[in-house]
């Protein structure tokens, strides 16, 4: 997630100091993204070094205010209007856990998939129940609704994936296909054994 681009995007609307930037980003993402204040300041320093933001003086409390330079504004616009590359998320914890589980003897993968389906369905219920109570006509709720919908669709996608792999596992078992469950021979390469 680009802290740098998000800071630039907020600064295209006017001058802000560091803490204010943190609050703006948090409220504009439906409270779903809380950035460490230290990260905000260090990013501002790098942006200033790269000529994308500049200091606009200090306020009464002595806080430095920043604004986007012309180059910074162009970069923010580019970020806001371009698609991001699909994230492979190949190391998604659940996928990795299931991939490992099918190779480890004694793991009840079917039970694991089932437990995950129930858990994800409950999460989907909670998200939906919360969304039900939100006033759809309140513009202040819009950022939260957008993020909530993403989480809802992600839950749905995960449930469809889990249902699909349940079938895959059942078919594999029916055909007697079992991944190699034994440890492979240690590679000869690597650090030599210490000798005293």
């Amino acid at each position: 997630m680009s802290v740098r681009a998000s800071i630039l995007a907020v600064l295209t609307m006017g001058e802000c100091h560091g803490y204010q930037l943190r609050q703006e980003i948090e409220s504009r993402t439906g409270g779903s993204w809380q950035i460490n204040i230290g990260q905000i300041y260090s990013t501002l320093e790098r942006l200033e070094r790269d000529g994308l933001v500049e200091s606009a003086g200090s306020n009464e409390q002595g806080q430095t205010r920043y604004r986007a330079t012309a180059t910074g504004s162009v970069e923010a616009q580019l970020w806001l209007t371009s698609a991001i590359e699909a994230s492979p998320e190949a190391r998604n914890e659940l996928a990795m856990k299931l991939a490992l589980a099918v190779t480890i003897p004694g793991c009840d993968v079917e039970k694991l998939v089932h437990a995950q389906r129930v858990q994800t369905m409950r999460t989907l219920q909670v998200l939906t129940a919360t969304k039900r109570d939100v006033d759809q006509n309140d513009p202040a709720e819009l950022p939260w609704l957008l993020v909530a919908d993403l989480n809802i669709f992600n839950c749905e996608a995960e449930l469809r994936w889990l249902e699909h792999i349940e079938g895959t596992l059942a078919r594999s078992a029916a055909r007697g296909l079992n991944p190699n469950q034994t440890l492979s021979q240690p590679a000869k390469r690597g650090r030599p054994t210490k000798t005293n």
């Binding site: 369905m121 989907l124 219920q125």
Partner: peptide, 11 residues
């Protein structure tokens, strides 16, 4: 449809 079922009190 899981998204639809999630509107229910019990599934």
């Amino acid at each position: 449809d899981a998204k639809l079922a999630a509107w229910a009190d019990r599934i």
